[in-house]
Structure formats: structure tokens, C-alpha cells
Design a protein around this nucleic acid. Structure first.
Length: 677
DNA sequence: GGTATGTCACGTGT
DNA sequence: CACACGTGACATAC
């Protein structure tokens, strides 16, 4: 178990009431905590030994039966059904989620501090995280709205540092972050879709919607922003260096940077125990002409003094974020650095990259290029961290354009697909002499047995000539909606997706043919010391984007049993974990969110042979926190027994980060884990 | 002295 | 040199 190290306790905590044995306790040192100057660094605490924290499982939320979610209307003020604070956590999704997280944090606290012995044990409820109170408790409605009048929402002033999380906790927090971001993205897209629909009815409607802002507001009203109960200095649990964000508000939602616009986030002086503000994170966005970004070393300009056209027009003052940075320098407190960089090929023209922790070395008042005074801060990246996301982005860029110049040694092949894919698939190994992937024939698509095509009537397709719409026959097969948005992003996972196919009249550019158009990203099969052969992309992959098919030769159960005795490598599609089920699931937001009656498929009873012919997917590694999911898709035949295995991104995957799949547990047929390598 | 309310600074995404 | 927007910190009012 990791430790949460409080090093600045800003509130006097009440006396300990009795604590029940079932509750974890929040403990705090008896002595008055003090800020120590930088020559006595705060990190003198030793990390705790690894302890496993009992993990509470997410309560399974039953799907209530009611209507589909309503519009994301802001004008309508209809309160959602809410969970009054203090009610048992089994009842409400949001509330239980909060309790779970806060409980984890409290347990971590207790574990950490018990080592000191000299502590007070406090009633956990005294510091319980409570979701933002809903204004009303009218249970009959569940329209998604953003409340017009926000209850005052105090951010915590309690500074903590989270270190040495155990593997279980890392996995847990990663999952919380991933789910929250997925909900953010679903809401963002939903908000824009609703707007487009409304605009069809009201042509005069011309006000642009900001889906990102709306999504953040909805999550905030539901109390689903992460890490609001503590001010975390240092890294945020569940967020890795190199993680990518397309929207500024997303940084707020996950707690990486709590300011919607300002580049410096800090604990305000008014809340700080000694009346001094402390900086926790900054965003280097290129908005200040006096910034100098050399990667490991940054000369960062303070905030303020600009007019509305971002020109310096007055001197900056040592207040707010500027003062906070100066105080952080004084106390030797590290700050998180997020870079906003231009990047084409993403969802927006800019991405935010978490680049890790920096220490502030120096601070001075200088005359900027404009002639006005600005505060400058010299920051140095702390050693021993993973490589910076922003430099990986740059490196990937050079690999895309001139691979052999950027990396002269290590390429075994510049296209293992031998031009069978639209884009080359690189093969790279710079650590040993293994050349295994060279010896397989590259297979672009899964080979199905002929009778998969004969079994059912084939001629069922749509008659759309130009483009398919929501009332098209193929949309009906998918429960009256397409599975993808107009950019080919998977909106919601389903047991099976019916794409338009050879029996449809629509063109190949139809939006319902996402998985039929081959590779879009440049992949690299690479050799790794940890995972053997693995796969990574040279391009940024947006969450929900189609990656590739998992291709092989389909075998019946009997055939598979014979071949597996030969030691051939087989894949069992029914063993992949059903990650599609959580993709696009908004039941945490809409209390009346129902799982539509999608057509389901019978349990899959086939295996795939990848022992002679395989594609790039076969080299993907297994992970219990995968970044790729399997979605079954049908298009070229109608046999539900034999769907294609299509892979989609579960999160924004930065270039050169390894792709991973949850292959599931040991297979029931053979007892072997279905991974080839 | 605490809470409620108002004002402002802070860039962003389109 | 367009425009609307959300948040948090802080000032002010009570």
C-alpha cells in the first residue's frame, strides 16, 4: 500500500470520537505540523512498506427501467435524483464512488501514520468527502441538467503527497481515472450531438456549444471530479507521465490542474496554515512570450499583466500564482508540469501532456520583451522520472517522417505486412537477436470458414445511396443508432456491431464501415525486456478510435483441439474480457440510463489459429489495465457465431506507448492463457 | 467571525 | 484583433 504523506495540515481536527472497526480511520499527527524551509526537505519521510489495501469493489449498478437520457439542457432546471449525504453508499452511484475513493485515501492515511504511534484517530466522517449537495430531492426526474446556481464548492486546503502506491492501488486509481475520462468524453460528444439535433429543429440556433465545458459541469454537479478532497503535491494517482489530454477542463476533472484557465494552480493564502500560498501545478502553454522551454529546464513567466489580446501591458505583481510559485521555491516543493503543445492529427489542434515533476530553482523579476516587468521562474525537472511525454511526441514525429535517421539501428523490417496494409508496420528490435515476427505470413483479415457465409441469407443490407442515416436499415440492426460518431469514434460498446457490408448500397466511405478500411496508424512491433514482443503506435490514438482487427484463421472446436495438441498457438475469442460493456456506459450519470436491447450473440465457440499467419494485433501484450478493448463486429456475413474481433482504444494512447489487451483468464479448453508470442 | 454574494483574473475552443 | 464561457480566489456585505 502506498502512503499519503501529509506535510501541511491546515485544519485543527476535532477530537476523536469512537471509530467502528469496519471503518478506516483518518489519523493525523499530534504535533503542530510546520512548513520547513527548503534546506530541510519535506521528503524525509520514508515510504511505507508495501501493504495491500482491501479493495472495495464497485457496487454493480442495476440498470433501472425507464426512458433514455434526456437532453443536456441548461435552461431547464430539473433536479436530478440525488443521494442525500449520509446515506449508505450502496444507494447512489456517485456517492458510493466518492465514499470508495475517500475511504481508500483515509485507509492510506491510517496505514501511513500508524507507524508513528503518536497520532490521534479521528472519526472518518469528520473528513468524509461529500458530493456536491443537490438542491432538491425530487426523485421523479432524472433529466441531465447543469444546475444554474452552484453550491459553493470549497477545494480542500489539506496538502498531501502520494508516494509508493502498490501495484493494486496503481491499477485501481488508473481505472478510476480512465472511467472518469471516458464519461467526460461520452458527455462531451453527447452534448454536441444533442446540439446538432436541436439545431435541425431550430435553424436559427447558432450558438456554439462547448461540449468540454458542459461535460465538466455535469461531472462537477455530480461530484465526480477527482482529487478534490485533498490538495495533492506531486504526482496524481492514476495519471502517468506522458498521458494526453485534449481539453483543459479534463485536467480539472482528474485533478491534475484545478484552474480552468489560469496556468498556475495553488493553495490560496487564505486557506493555508501559515497564510502563504503554495503552488502545485503549472501549464506551459506558450501563451507568454518570455517563456523559454528547453525541456528539462524551463524559464516560466508568471501570470498577469496582459491585456485581452495577450500582450504584456503592465508590470506583473508578486501575488496569486506568482507568489505561490515563489513560496514553493522557498519551501522546496515540487510542481507538476503540463505542457500544452500544438499537435496535428489529434481531436483538437493542441494537446496537453503531463510531463512530470519539476523543482523550482530560482525566481526573479525581469524586464520582459514587452518592456514590462515579469516574474520569471527557473524550473528543473526532477531526475529519475519516466521520459517526458512531450519529447516522446517529438521523437515519434521524427520516426514517422525519417525513421532510419532518427533511429539508425534496430529495424528488422520497414513493413512486416509487405504492403498488405495501407500503412507500413515496422519491426524493431534493439535489445536482442530475436527476429521471430519475420517468419510469419502477414494476414490482414480473419479467415472464416466458408459455411459462415452460407448459413444465413446473405442479401440483407441497406439501400442508402449516398450516406446512411439514423433510420437506415443497418442502424436499425444496431438498435436504432450507429455505433460510431462521424469521426469513426466508438460511442458505445455493444455485444456485436453490425456494419454496412457488401450487401449494402452505400459507398465505402459510409460512416458505418469504420473497421473495414484497414490500418490508419503506423504501428511498430517491437522487442521489450518486460513484455517480449509488443506493439506501439507512432501516431497518437484517440480514445474510442479503431485500431485494427485481431486476425487469424478461424477453427471449430474440434479442429482447435487437434491443433492445440500440436502446440500450435490459438486464440480463444470468448476469453477476452468484455471491456466493451463499460465503454460509453453512462449509468453513473443518468439514473434512468438503460442498456438498450441490443442484439446479443451466443457464446463464441471458435478458436483462431495464429501459428502460421497473423497480423500486428497478435503481438499485443496482456494487461489487466489494458488500453485496448475487443469489440465484435459483423459486416461481410451474417453468422453471429463468427464475428470479427475488432480492437478499439480505451483511452488516448500516446505515441510509442505499448498497446495492451485483456486476454482474460486461463482458457477453459486448454487451461492455457491465450496469448501468442 | 463566519457565511453569502459579487467581482475579477485567468485563457480556451470554436 | 470575435466571442462566450467556468472556475477559483478574493473582496465586500451582512
Amino acid at each position: 500500500m502506498g502512503s499519503l504523506i501529509p506535510f501541511l495540515d491546515l485544519n485543527q481536527l476535532p477530537d476523536p470520537p469512537t471509530t467502528s472497526a469496519t471503518k478506516s480511520a483518518l489519523v493525523t499527527p499530534k504535533m503542530e505540523p510546520k512548513l520547513e524551509p527548503s534546506d530541510e526537505p519535506l521528503e524525509t519521510h520514508q515510504p511505507t512498506q508495501q501493504q495491500s489495501l482491501p479493495q472495495q469493489q464497485t457496487p454493480q449498478e442495476p440498470f433501472s427501467s425507464s426512458t433514455t437520457p434526456n437532453i443536456l439542457s441548461k435552461s431547464q432546471h430539473t433536479p436530478i435524483t440525488s443521494q442525500p449525504s449520509g446515506i449508505s453508499s450502496e444507494e447512489g452511484n456517485v456517492y458510493s464512488e466518492f465514499c470508495r475513493i475517500s475511504e481508500l485515501f483515509r485507509s492510506a492515511f491510517a496505514k501511513r501514520l500508524q507507524r508513528y504511534g503518536d497520532v490521534d484517530v479521528l472519526d472518518p466522517d469528520s473528513r468524509a468527502i461529500v458530493p456536491v449537495p443537490q438542491e432538491d430531492n425530487n426523485n421523479q426526474v432524472s433529466t441531465l441538467v447543469v444546475s444554474r446556481r452552484r453550491p459553493p464548492h470549497q477545494r480542500s486546503a489539506e496538502l498531501v503527497r502520494v508516494t509508493d502506491l502498490g501495484i493494486e492501488d496503481q491499477r485501481y486509481f488508473r481505472d478510476v481515472v480512465r472511467r472518469t475520462r471516458m464519461i467526460f468524453d461520452s458527455l462531451r460528444v453527447l452534448s454536441m450531438t444533442e446540439y446538432e439535433k436541436r439545431r435541425l429543429g431550430e435553424p436559427g440556433l447558432n450558438r456554439r456549444v462547448r461540449g468540454d465545458l458542459r461535460a465538466a459541469s455535469v461531472l462537477r454537479d455530480r461530484g465526480m471530479w477527482l482529487n478534490r478532497d485533498k490538495r495533492i503535491v506531486g504526482s496524481i494517482p492514476g495519471i502517468y507521465i506522458g498521458d494526453l489530454f485534449f481539453f483543459r477542463m479534463e485536467l480539472c476533472v482528474v485533478g491534475l490542474h484545478g484552474q480552468a484557465q489560469a496556468g498556475i494552480d495553488y493553495v490560496p493564502a487564505s486557506q493555508s496554515s501559515n497564510g502563504e500560498p503554495i503552488a502545485t501545478s503549472i501549464i506551459v502553454s506558450g501563451g507568454y512570450e518570455d517563456d523559454e522551454d528547453a525541456g528539462d529546464v524551463i524559464i516560466y513567466t508568471g501570470q498577469g499583466g496582459q491585456d485581452k489580446f495577450s500582450r504584456q501591458c503592465v508590470h506583473q505583481k508578486l501575488e496569486g500564482g506568482n507568489l505561490a510559485l515563489e513560496r514553493s521555491l522557498h519551501y522546496g516543493i515540487e510542481v507538476r508540469v503540463i505542457r500544452g503543445i500544438k499537435y496535428e492529427g489529434g481531436l483538437t489542434s493542441k494537446v496537453y501532456v503531463y510531463d512530470g515533476l519539476y523543482r523550482i530553482l530560482d525566481c526573479w523579476f525581469d524586464v520582459g520583451k514587452s518592456g514590462f516587468g515579469v516574474y520569471k521562474y527557473k524550473l528543473l525537472r526532477i531526475d529519475g522520472q519516466a521520459e517526458m511525454g512531450s519529447s516522446i511526441l517529438r521523437f515519434a514525429e521524427s520516426l514517422r517522417t525519417r525513421p532510419l535517421v532518427a533511429r539508425p539501428a534496430g529495424y528488422l523490417s520497414l513493413d512486416v505486412s509487405a504492403k498488405k496494409e495501407k500503412v507500413p508496420v515496422f519491426l524493431f528490435n534493439d535489445i536482442d537477436s530475436d527476429q521471430e515476427p519475420m517468419y510469419y505470413e502477414y494476414l490482414v483479415r480473419t479467415v472464416f470458414p466458408p459455411y459462415a457465409f452460407n448459413r444465413t441469407g446473405n442479401g440483407t443490407g441497406c439501400e442508402c445511396v449516398s450516406s446512411c442515416a439514423d433510420d437506415c436499415f443497418c442502424a436499425t440492426k444496431n438498435g436504432g443508432e450507429f455505433a460510431y460518431d462521424h469521426n469513426g469514434i466508438l460511442l458505445r460498446g455493444k455485444p456485436v456491431i453490425f456494419e454496412c457490408g457488401p450487401f449494402c448500397r452505400c459507398p465505402p466511405t459510409c460512416r458505418n464501415r469504420v473497421t473495414q478500411n484497414g490500418l490508419r496508424y503506423r504501428f511498430e512491433v517491437f522487442r521489450s525486456r518486460e513484455t517480449g514482443w509488443g506493439v506501439r503506435s507512432l501516431d497518437l490514438i484517440q480514445a474510442g478510435a479503431f485500431i485494427c482487427e485481431y486476425a487469424g484463421v478461424v477453427l471449430t472446436r474440434d479442429q482447435a483441439q487437434i491443433l492445440s495438441m500440436n502446440g500450435d498457438t490459438l486464440i480463444y475469442p470468448n476469453r477476452f474480457s468484455s471491456r466493451w460493456a463499460e465503454w460509453g456506459d453512462l449509468s453513473q450519470i443518468f439514473t434512468d440510463y438503460v442498456r438498450p436491447s441490443y442484439p446479443s450473440i451466443p457464446p463464441l465457440d471458435f478458436a483462431m489459429d495464429v501459428s502460421r499467419m497473423r497480423n500486428v494485433a497478435c503481438y499485443m501484450s496482456h494487461s489487466e489495465t489494458p488500453n485496448v478493448l475487443v469489440q465484435f463486429v459483423l459486416y461481410d456475413h451474417n453468422s453471429l457465431m463468427f464475428p470479427h474481433l475488432m480492437l478499439f482504444a480505451m483511452e488516448n494512447i500516446p505515441p510509442l506507448r505499448e498497446l495492451s489487451l485483456d486476454y482474460g483468464v486461463a482458457d477453459e479448453w486448454t487451461g492455457k492463457l491465450s496469448i501468442c508470442n
